[in-house]
Design a protein around this nucleic acid. Structure first.
Lengths: 150, 150
DNA sequence: CACAATTTAATTGCACACAATATAAATGGG
DNA sequence: CCCATTTATATTGTGTGCAATTAAATTGTG
């Protein structure tokens, strides 16, 4: 048996697990609104600036249009956003926030801090985590970018 | 606009992004075998010890049986594993590796190291990342555990 | 200006991921 | 020993997540 391949020696697994645990933790707070974690991420980028094009949202969240299109359609059905073909470029679709969607923001402004309270980590430890992950992600993006074309 | 809710200020997003980027990076290497990342994780725990019960696999990978059952059925269809009801306890299903499934291991023993080569991070930096994530995950597991019953 | 190449969304198909439910087997207290 | 409870797995329904394809609009080049 190869020691390298033990689950507990893999870096990939704690990241995979953390991602799903975070989704579940957030989920507890979203349940009452019938909101999901990926939909919350779409809200994050729209609360910062709206309208945005579908591609813009997909690029920021590193998601495929095949993921984003049905996702925002569900958000439209809930009355949180609207989708409009741009007049200037008929190819693009602009995603607008409705008053309903804008109103949701105030329910979640303190949520990130609230979740961090559950976590017994030093502030510096979390900042290091954040920075290392950003660096790692940038490098993985480049590696993937290179592989698609050749 | 709340600064706290900017995407780049969230810790949750880099983790979510890293998880999906890792899945895609591994995916490049799995394509030739028609293997997926979650199936690879099942292999990791089976290569370490087999047979294992379905619940055991689900517990180790923090997955729902609703995820694991169909996943291992697909692996069975590929001829990598077999599923047998235990004679001692008819409720449990034991997941065994086939010769085919066992053979796959040698193709992936160097894979984790190979992927780390793409990453320009100091060894200590990655160890810190690993440790912090493990701590974080333990705490999230406890928080979620508490919430389900009350 | 024509038209091939590119860009933008949407669609299709398959594989997770999980909550909620169902079902069958084992367990334990009276 | 009986039956309520618990345990192990499977099923159903909904929502991602992504590769591959399609279709329509725009752009760049001769």
């Amino acid at each position: 048996m190869n020691k390298k391949l033990l689950l507990q020696n893999q870096l990939c697994f704690p990241i995979y697990a953390a991602s799903r645990l975070i989704t579940q933790l957030y989920g507890e707070h979203f349940k009452a609104f019938d909101l999901t974690y990926p939909q919350y991420l779409v809200f994050l980028v729209l609360w910062e600036k709206a309208p945005r094009k579908v591609t813009e949202i997909a690029d920021l969240l590193l998601l495929d249009t095949g993921t984003v299109t049905p996702l925002i359609k569900r958000m439209e059905k809930r009355g949180w956003i609207t989708r409009k073909r741009s007049a200037k470029d008929e190819r693009t679709v602009e995603v607008h926030l409705t008053a309903e969607g804008r109103k949701l923001e105030k329910h979640f402004t303190t949520l990130p801090d609230k979740l961090l309270c559950d976590v017994d980590c030093k502030k510096g430890e979390l900042e290091t985590l954040h920075k290392t992950l950003n660096k790692l992600n940038e490098q993985m993006k480049i590696t993937l970018e290179g592989g698609h074309h050749e």
